[in-house]
Design a protein around this nucleic acid. Sequence first.
RNA 1: GGCCCCAUGGUCUAGUGGUUAGGACUCCGCUCUUUCAAGGCGGCGGCACGGGUUCGAUUCCCGUUGGGGCUACCA
Length: 502
Amino acid sequence: MTDEMSEVRTRFAPSPTGNLHVGGAHTALFAWLFARHEGGKFVLRIEDTDEVRSTEESLQAIYDGLKWIGIDWDEGPDVGGPFEPYVQSERLELYDQQFDRLMDSGRAYRCFCTPEELQQQREIMQARGIPPRYEGPCRNYDEKQIQTLLAEGKPYCVRFRVHESGTTVVDDLIRGEVSFDNSLLGDFVIRKTSGYPTYHMAVVVDDHLMDITHVIRAEEHLANTPSHVQLMEALDFERPQFAHLPLILGPDRTKLSKRHGSVNLLDYRDQGFLPEAMRNFLAIIGWSPGAEQEILGLEELIQKFTLDNVSKSPGIFDLEKATWLNGEYLKTADADYLTDLLVPMLQEEGLIEGDLSPERREWLERVVDLMKERTRLLNDFVVWGRYYFTEDFPYDNRARKKWLRREDVPERLDMLAERIEKMENWDLASIEQVIRGLADDIDVGAGKIIHPCRAAVTGQTIGPSLFHLMELLPKESVVARLRRAAELGRAGEMEPLPDVEE
RNA sequence: GGCCCCAUGGUCUAGUGGUUAGGACUCCGCUCUUUCAAGGCGGCGGCACGGGUUCGAUUCCCGUUGGGGCUACCA
């Protein structure tokens, strides 16, 4: 860096052509963490130079995705900043100024080739085993020929004239020096026929104009970088520092795509992930704090993040691990916070209706506190905890096989129901006392009552402490459930269901 | 095909010119006995291969293999 006071400035520059991709979120997170760690600025710039695919909805999806995992931006289309505008389609005249400079210096030229002609040229070169680079006629037209074509009104794009020999060396903070043979680079298009800049031009111009100090982006851009570097030199721009991040791959080791499940970050919210867990997970793909610690909160991430702990090799999006991590966050999360997230999900399932009374809300938080220890996704609360909210819950096959279909169970359930019905205090100690008391009286182990009771009351063989969960259910409901299970058992209705997962 | 990047268990990774190569996920076993998809304990499993350099390479160099990326008027 130079001697002058230079603040770190990084950016995330997505194209609004879809949802925020998991890979994009990863890149954004790293660029953001770096800026925050360095006390610098993080810029959001929208690269909508693909006139065909860019959409407004997509822009919103990007905002939503970034915000979800807690990434904020100091400058951007919605918040403004000293380098406005932050949307490339609104910066066309800025690129035109640079095109003019390049044309004047002879580093750029008009290309009148049609897409068909280009395609043909490519095929010929490929067939001859030559690297497909532009070698068409346009790079050598003289002024007169150009004027003629212009007069004819032939459409054209603008190409950048790359060096024909020599080497371009890219100094990458993660990979070290990487060199590229210039003769392999083709004259690439920098201005489309439409007048829009291509990505290569726009990114170089904007990174310079916006004083970006560190270009942090995915590795797929590494091979484009020598082109960018030549452009910068031709334009007399100072080079930023480069850091090319490892890619995220699917379990089959190809670039993460729809085939591997969802690539839309926000789908994971819908699948029951907590934003802090997803952020943590994304952070430890391709980066590690160096210590034997994987669970890191926001402040820790910012504090510990450095580029030299970023790995060079690609990482795999391991949903198992993400799910585990989510479970860890769930365990320690506040019931209040989780309840806020859960209410809409429960409403959607029809398990709660309308607004919660303060008492009901308090009750829900107790349920959440009881359940969160053994959940891994928010949805687990809804699926495994269904019995807290409705009498209409299924008896799973394990519960049926292990307890509910047994001959001696209905009688015990009825006996328990009878005793519970007579209880005056509905609290933890009393519940435990009644259950253990029954076991003692009929001279069986406590488990022989506890397990069938759990199966009858929850339909499951697993779950939180039975006494605790019973306490959260109305006494009448527990009695009814015990009797219903006993009845169904006697009627032979508790046989395992075919084709049902256990 | 060409160019570029990468390579520690199945996965994410720590680490070193001499280590019993450490941790996490997953899987398995044991335990807790009020269940487990919870907790506790333990286990299986790794430096891709071949050459060098070196007294000694997982570590440094070269090659091979494998994987990935780029090779658009997409970004």
